[in-house]
Design a protein around this nucleic acid. Structure first.
Length: 318
DNA sequence: CGCGAGCCTGACGGAATGAA
DNA sequence: TTCATTCCGTCAGGCTCGCG
């Protein structure tokens, strides 16, 4: 490969011309050994690919688990022995008997949208420069303050749109999978402004915890409701109105229990994310091992006849 | 390279609502 | 009624990726 690097042309699409390929110098072992190397690589690379596929499956299962943990905890609580009652809402099924069901509007003090002036394409440079959030800041598992665009110097910022700790942000327009994504702002961002495509909810914190509501909005039940309610002619930009959020049923434990549930979910999430990271590292290592193995086998650094007799293969250090 | 497809979203316009 | 603001919907374009 290293021999070809200087011969590869193209900027956006990298292509190798035939001539350098034809002129490539290679070492050619006897035919029987070529066959042995090919057979060896088939076996060993196959093993590595199977291990990597298992890790990929593990990651998919962990992501499902992460979702299931949220969905279960925000609708059933942490005590498996708590008596249940019918919630009266079809998509919520049963909830603990001591919980209430309210409309989200009953715990919301304000809901507002922001402002989307024409901005620079680059994010604000440091916390002192004004920036306007992009809708993508609520995608994924947590609020991402780096998803913003710098406000041009000739535009006057609107300080009342800057973010405060506890603000709950929800995207009002995006693809079906992303619309309604919710994230909690954990600290003040004095110079970051709310954009037109985001709803900001401020709650009666004596009744409802923003952490709990954020997690509830991420549950599979709410995702299902949002995806049903999303409207619009363009499938790449579906919308949800304020009423979709405000009229949604919310199963509400006592405030203290909301906090316990949120803390527990966040702890589980950390553990699951650590496992996902481990699996991803394992895949990276397997890919490196795969490339090294192929390289070592075709350059004669592994004696494949000896390797065939052993299950473990020793490679010379690179 | 050039092109098309898919995905995402900024920007803008129109409808609805509220204030004067 | 008029004007301003808020809310909602979508067009068009940027970006990435894959293909011939």
């Amino acid at each position: 490969m290293a021999q070809w690097e200087s011969s590869i042309g193209g900027a956006t699409f990298r292509a190798l011309n035939l001539e350098p390929l034809a002129n490539t110098l290679g070492c050619l072992p006897p035919f029987a050994e070529q066959e042995a190397i090919a057979g060896f690589l088939d076996r060993e690379v196959g093993k590595i690919d199977r291990l990597a596929a298992e890790q990929e499956r593990l990651i998919a299962l962990l992501k499902e688990k992460r979702q299931a943990v949220i969905s279960h905890a925000v609708t059933k609580g942490l005590n498996p022995n708590a008596p249940l009652k019918d919630s009266g809402i079809e998509w919520l099924c049963q909830i603990p008997a001591h919980w209430e069901v309210v409309r989200i509007k009953h715990v919301v003090v304000t809901i507002e949208q922001g402002w989307s002036p024409q901005c620079d394409a680059t994010p604000a440079d440091g916390p002192e420069q004004w920036g306007v959030l992009k809708v993508g800041c609520v995608n994924g598992d947590r609020f991402n303050a780096s998803e913003n665009k710098a406000l041009p110097d000739d535009l006057e910022p609107l300080p009342e749109l800057s973010l405060r700790a506890g603000d709950l942000l929800i995207s009002r327009a995006n693809t079906r999978e992303l619309v309604g994504s919710a994230a909690l702002v954990e600290q003040d961002h004095d110079h970051l402004l709310l954009c037109d495509k985001l709803y900001r909810l401020r709650l009666q914190t004596s009744v409802a915890s923003p952490e709990f509501l954020t997690l509830f909005l991420r549950s599979s039940m709410v995702r299902g409701q949002i995806e049903i309610a999303a409207s619009g002619a363009s499938s790449s930009m579906l919308n949800i109105g304020q009423s979709v959020i405000l009229e949604m049923a919310l199963p509400l434990p006592p405030l203290g229990e909301q906090g316990e549930i949120a803390t527990w979910i966040l702890k589980c999430r950390e553990q699951i994310e650590a496992l996902i990271n481990d699996a991803q590292s394992a895949i990276t290592l397997l890919q490196e091992r795969r490339a090294a193995l192929i390289s070592a086998a075709v350059t004669g650094k592994i004696d494949v006849r000896a390797a065939a007799a052993n299950t473990t293969v020793e490679m010379e250090p690179a």
